[in-house]
């Protein structure tokens, strides 16, 4: 993109560069300001509004709603949301790094097939994939029967409706999002570096840890973000395969919105979740800022 001056040519006069820039930027700028920025600000504002007696939004301003986040059962739910998301992220990275490595090193024919197999679940309906697990984990379902037959679990154990089932389905849902950016980074990695390290006497574990991992750092960072942030906002997974004992912040937001019709409360929870989401994002952008500006999400698309 050289900005070098060009002699005006042709019959139609080109509008001045500044005006063209505004013309092509304005549609998306206006749309996203009205339907993304303004709504987010409305949520922040309503979090400081009282609840009216009919469950609507009351007049005036109050800190009461925000303060109520500190009491009853919220801390437990917030803590569960954080640890479930963190463990999901860790498991996804642990599985995605070897998988990304394997796909990147496979022969071209196999690579295309493996990549396709990773992408297909990515394109299939998210609800259907969650439902498939509900069927599989059902007390009368196939997995339970196999596990009981193998004497691996007690017939009285429930596989469904606990934090474990939520964790399992979260890993299942977010794993393709972790594999794709790690594969993209591994594909660009020069594997001769690993061989060089081995020739110089590094063990394969050492070569992996000190050469390969730092080489795909950017991909791992993207994977962490695209798993951790959406995981924090999980709502359907704990709703379908979790139970009252596996609720996350997302469930509370939906419950306050649809069941209790308590919009200020739902807004207060959303404000908290927004802040929780912004923290890792700003950290990542800060880290990136030092290494030159380049989209992090790009490799995931």
């Amino acid at each position: 993109m050289s900005g070098r001056p060009r002699a005006p040519s042709g019959t139609e006069a080109a509008p001045p560069a500044g005006r063209v820039e505004w013309m092509v930027s304005l549609p998306s700028l206006v749309w996203l300001t009205v339907l993304f920025v303004v709504p987010t600000l409305i949520v922040f504002a309503i979090a400081f509004k009282p609840v009216s007696s009919y469950g609507g939004i009351g007049a005036g301003w109050t800190l009461e709603t925000m303060r109520s986040l500190a009491n009853p059962n919220y801390p437990a739910i917030i803590w569960r949301t954080l640890w479930l998301s963190a463990v999901t992220m860790a498991l996804c990275i642990v599985l995605a790094v070897p998988a990304g490595y394997c796909i990147a090193r496979a022969a071209p024919r196999w690579r295309r097939l493996l990549l396709l197999l990773v992408i297909v679940p990515f394109w299939t309906s998210f609800l259907i994939r969650i439902f498939a697990w509900k069927v599989l984990l059902h007390p009368e379902g196939p997995l339970k029967r196999v596990l009981v037959a193998l004497h691996l679990v007690d017939p009285a154990t429930t596989l469904l409706y606990n934090a474990g089932s939520v964790l399992l389905v979260m890993v299942y849902t977010f794993l393709p999002f972790a594999i794709l950016p790690i594969y993209a980074a591994a594909e660009k990695f020069d594997f001769r570096l690993v061989e060089a390290a081995r020739d110089l006497g590094a063990s394969s574990l050492r070569a992996f840890w000190s050469v390969f991992l730092p080489g795909i750092r950017r991909g791992v960072m993207t994977a962490i973000l695209v798993v951790f942030i959406p995981a924090l906002g999980s709502y359907v997974i704990p709703d379908v395969v979790g139970g009252p004992n596996a609720e996350m912040i997302g469930n509370k937001i939906a419950q306050r919105t649809f069941v209790d019709r308590n919009l200020p409360h739902a807004s207060a929870l959303s404000t908290f979740l927004t802040l929780a989401v912004l923290a890792p994002m700003i950290a990542a952008l800060g880290l990136q800022g030092r290494k030159g500006r380049q989209p992090i999400i790009e490799e995931a698309g």
Binding site: F36, P39, P230, A266, L273, M281
Partner: peptide, 17 residues
């Protein structure tokens, strides 16, 4: 930003809007 913001946040903010 909309790419990384959890869907539920976009949902509730649009509803309130």
């Amino acid at each position: 930003t909309p790419l990384v913001v959890p869907e539920i946040l976009m949902g509730i903010s649009l509803l309130l809007f």
